[in-house]
Amino acid sequence: MSRADLPDPNEVRKRRLALLARADRAALERVFAGAGLPDHCVLKAEETGTVMVEGRAGGAGRRFNLGEATVTRCVVRVGDHMGVSYALGRDKRKARLVAVIDALMQDDAHRDALEAELLGPLEDALREARDRASRKAAATKVEFFTLVRGEG
């Protein structure tokens, strides 16, 4: 996920929805703190369901069903743009907010402002949190020394 301009329109959307799926609801609410949500039509009302999470035997082999995870989705239309939200968890308000933001960010009038105000900082914070967790794990990295063991 790079903030540089991406050529494939799906990649832009994928990056955006991946970041928004990981966002706190509070950060999303702040976007609309002044004027409230823009007018939008709900194509698919917020709904909580599940997605069956699949794994692969041995990590790379036959697919199997590991178990389900809760997922909440919402689809809206803002002007000519369809905004979609699918994210883990049961937060319906967040689903509505993400769908509206996804639609707004397809509009040239809003894209840059939302990138600067929301997505950029979200991406930075996520990268920082990931890096911190990784460096804490790295502090527990060991070198084992094999000692010669007696016969027995």
Partner: peptide, 23 residues
């Protein structure tokens, strides 16, 4: 509770090789 929820589908198989490792 699970039985009360609609299922939207199945995920892509998770890629554990790409795990953000903590252990």
């Amino acid at each position: 509770y699970r039985t009360t929820l609609p299922r939207f589908g199945s995920s892509e198989p998770v890629d554990t090789a790409a795990m953000a490792i903590r252990r």
